[in-house]
Design a protein around this nucleic acid. Structure first.
Length: 109
DNA sequence: ACCCTGACTATCT
DNA sequence: GAGATAGCCAGGG
């Protein structure tokens, strides 16, 4: 370890993973929401970077993480978009006009 | 230390 | 309601 200070950052990352794992099937959360729950309010982009680093075989329900407006974070023409969309729909999270109705599907811990 | 990038957001046209 | 803009945090070159 190069850091003398105890890694606040890594601790937050673990808490982030833990929080994401707690999102129930059929519900979704936003990047900003998760950042706040992980004690890193305002760090929505940090959440995204953490998810991007996840290994392909991760058990984490990354598909339940959406943008604030209910849209997926990927462009609609990308493979990742449809991968995530199919996963969500198989859990009962439906999309209308390329976005999820947050009023209905957002997780509220 | 500086600059750029990104699985982000809120606000204003 | 769809773009453009400006904040935002953390990483990496």
């Amino acid at each position: 370890m190069t850091n003398a200070a105890p890694n606040e950052r890594e601790l937050a990352r673990l808490q982030l993973y833990q929080t994401i794992a707690a999102i129930p099937e059929g519900k979704v959360a936003t990047y900003g929401q998760l950042a706040m729950l992980a004690g890193q309010a305002g760090a929505a982009r940090w959440v995204g970077s953490c998810l991007r680093k996840l290994p392909p075989d991760s058990k984490l329900p990354w598909q339940r993480v959406l943008r604030a407006g209910g849209k997926l974070a990927f462009p609609e023409n990308s493979a990742a978009y449809w991968r995530q969309r199919h996963l969500l729909e198989s859990e009962g999270v439906l999309l209308q006009n390329h976005k999820v109705n947050m009023r209905r599907f957002q997780w509220q811990p």
